[in-house]
Each structure stands twice: as C-alpha cells, then as structure tokens.
Amino acid sequence: MAEKRNIFLVGPMGAGKSTIGRQLAQLLSMEFIDSDNEIEQRAGADIGWIFDIEGEEGFRKREARIINELTQKQGIVLSTGGGAVLSKETRNHLSARGIVVYLQTTVDKQFERTQRDKKRPLLQGVQDARQVLQELAEIRNPLYEEVADITLPTDEQSAKLMANQIIELIENFQN
C-alpha cells in the first residue's frame, strides 16, 4: 500500500475494534488511535464518569468533535466507539476521509466478550445486558452497514488473522 489511506473501524462493543486495530496499525506501520481512549485522555476522566456527568448526549457531542478532528489526520487506523455512528455528521466524516471497515459480531459473542467488563457505561446496572445489546444492534447495525466500505464478521478468528484479511480486502478495494 504505497498510499496510506486512513482506515476506520466501526462496529458494536466487543467486536474487537481496538484489538484488531492495533494489529492492523502494526502490520501497516501506521498510527493507531482509539477514539474512546482519546476522549478519556483529553477529558482526564473515564467514559463512565463522562456519561454520569454529561449523560450520553454530552458524551456523543464530545465523541463527534474528536472523531471529526481525528479523521482529518493522514495514515491512521482509528477504532471508533460503538455508538459513534449514531451521528450523521460522524458517519459522513468517516465515509469521506478513509476506508470504513465494519467489524460485525453477534449479540451472543458481544455478551460473552463484555459481561465482565466494567468500562461499558451502557451495560452498567442493567437487568438484562443481552437485551440491551440486542436493542443497540437493532438501531446501530443498519448504520454500520450504511457507512461501511468493507464488512467482516469477527466471531471466530484471531485479531492477527482479521488484520491480514482487512489488508487484503483494502488492497482489492483500492484497485
């Protein structure tokens, strides 16, 4: 890949965006950025705290601003938060400024990967996390599909294998 196009990873929580993104960036010698980590660093607080203080709406505004800024960089692999696609403006920025890869996963796999994770504000203090994941999937999956240039299921493969698959698909996509 002579020209380093931005690669943006979208998908639900637990799809493997951060893990696969790190592998991808390493293989391509590109900078990896996780938008959630970037938000936490700039705020000096974790996402759970931001949700508690500003609510989801305040967090989403902050997220949209940061993703707008990050997508203007060149040669990055960006892992976005699961809800980043809720903003039409963010979807437009992602589409216009790089190749968008939708990492698809099942609700069962998400549940398995996130059930012990205490850093998921939308799953904290809920009676039925699986039901929440299902409801989020119904709203967000069509948005991931809308913005994606490439869609890839992540359920049964290692991050390294997924990263290599993405590289192959991107090279084919660009030709």
Rank of each mutant, 00 (worst) to 15 (best):
S79V: 02
K88T: 11
L86T: 10
E112A: 15
I33K: 09
E56V: 15
V101L: 08
R97Q: 07
T105E: 01
K109Y: 01
L70M: 03
Q26S: 11
R65L: 06
Q127G: 15
L103A: 07
T114R: 12
E168A: 08
T71Q: 01
D36M: 06
G75Y: 10
F32L: 03
Q115N: 13
G55P: 09
I66E: 04
E63T: 07
K118R: 12
K73R: 09
N164I: 12
L136N: 09
K61S: 15
L24N: 10
R116A: 11
A163R: 02
T154E: 10
T151R: 00
R97M: 10
G16W: 02
R120S: 06
V10P: 05
G14R: 06
V107L: 03
V77K: 08
I150G: 11
F173Y: 14
R60A: 06
A45C: 04
T105G: 06
Y144H: 09
P121W: 00
G75R: 01
L9S: 07
P142W: 05
Q134R: 13
Y102L: 08
A25Y: 02
D155E: 12
T19K: 13
E56H: 14
R42E: 12
K109Q: 11
E171P: 04
E56Y: 04
E156I: 02
S29L: 11
R113F: 01
I170M: 07
A159F: 08
E54M: 13
L103K: 00
L122P: 05
K73C: 02
G44H: 05
A159N: 10
T19R: 07
D46H: 03
G14H: 01
Q41P: 11
F51N: 09
E138C: 09
N172R: 04
E54G: 15
R22Q: 10
D52G: 14
E135R: 15
F111S: 14
K17L: 07
D108M: 10
L169P: 12
E135M: 10
T151E: 15
V101P: 02
F173A: 08
L78F: 04
S18M: 05
F51I: 09
P121L: 01
V107F: 00
S35M: 10
I76N: 09
E69W: 07
R116P: 03
R22E: 00
E54V: 09
Q115D: 04
L103V: 03
K160H: 08
D155G: 13
F32M: 04
R116G: 14
V77Y: 03
N6V: 07
V101N: 01
N172C: 11
L169C: 08
K88A: 14
S158I: 00
R22M: 04
Q127T: 11
Q23S: 12
Q174W: 11
Q74P: 05
A159T: 04
N141E: 13
E145H: 07
S87V: 08
M30L: 08
E112N: 14
G55Y: 03
K4R: 11
Q115F: 00
D117W: 00
E89K: 06
D128P: 09
G16N: 07
E135D: 14
A2P: 06
G75V: 13
E38H: 13
G82H: 03
